[in-house]
Nucleic acid binder design. Structure first.
Lengths: 130, 130
DNA sequence: ATACACCTTAGAGTCAACTCCAAGTCAATG
DNA sequence: CATTGACTTGGAGTTGACTCTAAGGTGTAT
């Protein structure tokens, strides 16, 4: 699979894919005799994983560390598991912030719905919201 | 309330608070006669809102737009509501990505737990994960 | 009244994560 | 076999969101 096809498949730029490979967010991608990237199923899987974790706010550094451990072989199973558990904790903590913001938004939207209907914006407590 | 106290209260740097005010993420903060910031309850409320939305990944530009509408007065109730609804949609979409990543992580962690116990890492489908 | 900690501004610097560019190579088509 | 379009690399540039620095003002405790 060419880089262009991978771009379309994952809606990501070729520059980003090359960047990920260059810095080690994914391992080296398979090449043709001429040196052109030809993504295998396994390469695609790495790309999918990288994009999935990046979309959830995981820093590139963490992904690089994971790939580094992967390259070191089977002795790093434990370290890789620990890293994934840390990633999970981080994402759970981040998601909580999203839930907090959503709660605040629900409240504000309900007050603005009222304001649009009545022409008056009124919060439950003094100075509690804007 | 001094800037230092606000920093402690929200665990944010004074530079960030001044930056938020400068670019318009929050309206101008009340000052003492000498020109020193003295955050009112309302100012604190704006700070809390800004930090909450920023923690949920909302770009500064959106917050600036909201404050701009707020400053324009009561004719912008509708526009402010629409902007909040857009923010909600964005955050819901982002949260979905977090959930996807968590699902992937759960799966991988379970496989690594097994790998640590058995010494063998095995995915359900060929090349499905790394 | 003089330290001293803390505040002010404008503007420059930093960092993560891309994104773009120049110069050149590869591969399918007329 | 020449054109065309996509690919390659190394390195420079951009963007969003801070973060720091320099030069100076404020306010309170001795």
């Amino acid at each position: 699979m060419t880089i262009k096809e991978v771009c379309r498949k994952f809606d990501v730029s070729a520059d980003t894919l090359r960047y990920y490979e260059r810095v080690g967010v994914i391992p080296e991608v398979h090449r043709t005799a001429g040196g052109i990237r030809d993504y295998s199923a396994e390469d695609l899987n790495w790309v999918a994983t990288a994009i999935c974790f990046r979309s959830a706010g995981m820093p590139i550094e963490l992904l690089i560390e994971y790939v580094k451990l992967f390259r070191e072989g089977d002795e790093t199973f434990g370290a890789r598991r620990d890293l994934l558990i840390e990633a999970k904790e981080r994402i759970l903590a981040e998601r909580k912030k999203y839930d907090d913001a959503l709660e605040k938004l629900e409240y504000k939207i309900s007050k603005y719905d009222e304001a649009v209907r009545t022409g008056v914006l009124k919060w439950d407590e003094e100075g509690s919201c804007k």
